[in-house]
Write a protein that binds this DNA or RNA. Structure first.
Lengths: 205, 205
DNA sequence: TTTACTTTTAACAGAATTGTTAAAATACTA
DNA sequence: TAGTATTTTAACAATTCTGTTAAAAGTAAA
């Protein structure tokens, strides 16, 4: 077996599949379109991945695996200031989202909720690091303590995710081109970092 | 023709179609599932709506029509304080989202971007009311002027939309049941209203 | 009750799509 | 270079899904 070219064929297929699945979703994706895009015969998809379902799961898993490392931001070392941690997370998260469709994950989870539980089982523990970290910050009187950490979680993730997944709609609503919207969004991570920090800062009164 | 029952059959179909389209998307929806849910023969769907496509457009249009009135919040009367306007909008918006899937709209727009342009053409003018209103507030020195109104637009809409469309994922990440998440979210509109007001208030320095 | 019209159904046709298989092409090794 | 294993393709089988149609059932009105 030629590992070299075999890997590359598989990669070519996966890249094509990723594109098609991300824009069309599982149900809208066509094996034909994927093979066309990859420039190979349709039967070859089945040779490598057996079924559409299996191929999809591979794509889905990989997206999830790329995401999970971001959560290590919230490991509890208190060396680094929470402001820096937050800024770092926001930038990493938004960068991640630019190359990985969150909408894709979300859409497919809603189509088939089992995906969420089965695929993230092994990361289960990591998931509540955020809340633990922010609760700790409150205890230490480093941030305001009158907002439930779970709200903070929801707020930060919403501010990062939605502007990217909803880009088309926002650019249309704001009456600017998608390109202009992208440009506008280059300043966005900075802005929300600052706003969030300002908001969360410990308020003595 | 019996208008009574005819309307109600159509309504029954539309309700079923709405459910199926919203959870499965256009591509995942099956005419059979819709007719089963409506308790009628599949051919009847075609009798009333001709094609799946046409039926879908009806659902999509209606969702959009229900949404558009919310935008009138940003008509420029300066009688009502901007804080109240904002709070009112957030509550109305979140209430709207609870019964109308934003994810549905978004997913389908990405599948077929023409939907956005063609369907919102007639509402085009309303779309930038928000930005005009907030620019005005800045002029009048009622809110801080160092944040682009378009960012404010994006931030507010993200904070309202994403927690609802992403509910399943958030509840899973926070390790609470969907029911508990819903309960948690009852306090959410109040919280973000307050936070946003606090954030936007004119900052004398 | 008969007639005409509307609504609903069962059966079918046609198209699209996934997955299989056997053979052809290619690459590897002795 | 001959032989073997791997990769790729063309052709096909099976299923699923949409949309049509003709007939049946139901409704209203004369």
């Amino acid at each position: 077996m030629n590992l070299e070219t075999s890997l590359s064929t598989e990669e070519v297929i996966l890249a094509a599949a990723r594109k098609v699945f991300e824009s069309k979703g599982f149900d809208g994706a066509r094996m034909q379109e994927i093979s066309d895009r990859a420039g190979i015969n349709r039967a070859l998809l089945h040779y490598y991945f057996r079924t559409k379902e299996k191929m999809f799961e591979r794509i889905f898993d990989e997206a999830l695996e790329r995401f999970m490392p971001l959560l290590s931001t919230w490991d509890q070392d208190l060396e680094e200031s929470w402001e820096l941690k937050l800024k770092r997370f926001i930038i990493k998260f938004i960068t991640f989202l630019k190359t990985n469709s969150m909408l894709f994950l979300l859409r497919e989870i809603i189509r088939k909720p089992e995906l969420l539980a089965s695929k993230t089982e092994k990361h289960r523990k990591k998931l509540n690091k955020f809340v633990l970290y922010f609760d700790r910050l409150k205890q230490e009187r480093l941030i305001r303590s009158d907002v439930d950490s779970r709200y903070i979680y929801v707020i930060i993730h919403s501010l990062c995710s939605f502007p990217l997944m909803n880009g088309i709609v926002f650019s249309y609503s704001l009456r600017i081109s998608p390109k202009e919207y992208d440009e506008l969004m280059t300043g966005y991570p900075e802005i929300i970092s600052d706003l969030l920090i300002q908001l969360l800062k410990y308020q003595k009164n």
